[in-house]
Design a protein around this nucleic acid. Sequence first.
RNA 1: GGAGGGGUGGCAGAGCGGUCGAAUGCGGCGGUCUUGAAAACCGCUGAGGCUUUCGGGUCUCCCUGGGUUCGAAUCCCAGCCCCUCCGCCA
Length: 420
Amino acid sequence: MTPLQRVRENPEKVREMLEARGFDAPLDRILELDRKVRDLRAKKERLQAERNKASRGGPPSDEVKRRMREVGDQIKAIDAELGALEIELNEKALWIPNEIDPRVPRGKDENDNKIIRKDEPKKLDLTPKPHWDVGESLGILDIPRAAKLSGSRFFALRGAGAALERALIAWLIDIKIPHGFVEVSPPFVTRKETLVASGHLPHFDENLYRDEDDDVWLIPTAETQLVSLHRDEVIPVERLPVRYVAYTPCFRREKMSAGRDVRGMKRVHQFDKVEMVVFCLPEDSPDQLAFLNERAIEAVERLGLPVRVAERCTGDLGFTALRGFDVDVWAPGVEEWLEVSSTSDCGSFQAERAHVSFRRAAGKALEAPHILNASGLGMSRLYAALVENYQQRDGSLVIPEPLRPYMGGRDKIAPGEFTL
RNA sequence: GGAGGGGUGGCAGAGCGGUCGAAUGCGGCGGUCUUGAAAACCGCUGAGGCUUUCGGGUCUCCCUGGGUUCGAAUCCCAGCCCCUCCGCCA
C-alpha cells in the first residue's frame, strides 16, 4: 500500500506515525488535494468517455465535431487546473515516511534505543589517545593537509594507513560473499529519480552534494544505487532473496550538524562504506533483517572490537525504515560508541517508489518485494575505533589479524615509518 | 564535441491520422492427444487508476513533455536515453 493510500484510508494512524517518528508532512493539504484531484479526474473521465465514443468509427458529422470541440475545450480547462494539483499532490506525498513495525520500541531519540548487547571495553595497558593523535603521530592520518585540499571534515590517509583502509574494504566485501551476496561496483554519481526511489529525496536534500549544471548528485550511500539497480523491473521470484554488497565512497554535506563532531573522523563529508542491500519476499524480511544485523556484528567481532547493538526506537528510525538496528563500536580514545552500521527493513516502501516488483506465480498479481539495507561497515568510524583500540605503548599500531593478508603480511605500523 | 540511426506489450518485430491496447512470431498459462514427456492442435496471456448491484463499467499508458486535430502509436516541436562512426582523453 502506498503512503497516499495509507493517508486516505486512515489519516489518524499516519498522523500518529509522524508524531512517533518526529517527522512532519502536510497531511491536511494532502487530503484536500487528493479529494480535489479525484473529483476533477472523474469529471475529466466522463468527458473523455464522451469524446472516445464520438470518435470511434469514422469521421463524425459537423454537428458532432462542433460539440466535441467544446468537450475538448472543457477537458483542456480541467487539465489546466488538474495538472498543477497533481504535481503538488505527488510532491507532498513524497514527504510521507514509511509505516512503523508495531514491535518497535517507542522513544524520542537515540537515547531511547533498546540496548540489546553491550560489550566491555577492551583492556588496554595505556591511556588511550584519540585516533587523530595516534594517526597523525604515525603519519598515517593527515587532517590538516586534507583541510588544505578540501576544507574541514575531510581526511587523508598515508602509507600503510591508506593500505589499512583498502584492506578493510576488501576484507569486508570478501567475508560477505560466502553468505550469498553478489558484489556490485556502482557509479558514485546518481540522478534525482534514483534518490527519490530510495527515499533520500526530498527530505535528505540539504545533506546531498549536487552538480546543478547536469543535475547529477553524489551518492550519500551505495544504498541508493543498489535499490534502483532493479528500478522498473520485475524480479523473477525464484531469484529471491537477491543480496548485493557494494563498496562506494559516500558524500554528505552535514549541513544539519554544523559545528558538531568536527574533530577527527567521526563525521566527515566523504567516507568509504561497504553496503548490503537485500530484496526478498515480504514474509522473509524479519529474518533477513536479523541476518543483516548478524553480518554487521560478525565483522566487528572478527576485528576484535567491543560491540554495542541497539534496536532503534520510533524517534530514531529514520524516514524509510519499518524497523532497524544500530551496531556501534567502542572507541576508547574519544570515549564514545561510534555507529558503524545501521540495519533497516524498509518493507515495500522503497520497492513501491522504485517500481520493483515480483510475481509469486505466472498469472498472479505483481507484488512489491521488501527491501532491506545495512552497512557492513562504515569505514571512517571503524577506522577511528580500530586505531584507538590497537594503539600500543610504544606508539605503534597493531594490525588486526584478519587484515594482515590484505597488507602483504604486515602486522604493525611503527613510529617513524611514514612521518613527514 | 561532430555526423548518423533508433526508442512499440516478457522478448523479437509490424503498425494508411479513425473500434489499435496495438498484427505476427517466440515465450508463459490452460486444455486435447499420450503410460509419461516431446511434437502437433485449440484457447487464454501487459500494467495502473477510479467505480461497481462483483456480471461489469470507465479512464490512462506505444521514451518524456508540449502542440496540431472532432480524433494521434501514427503529424509537428522540445527534451531524455540507447546504438554506430569520427575527434579528444583516462
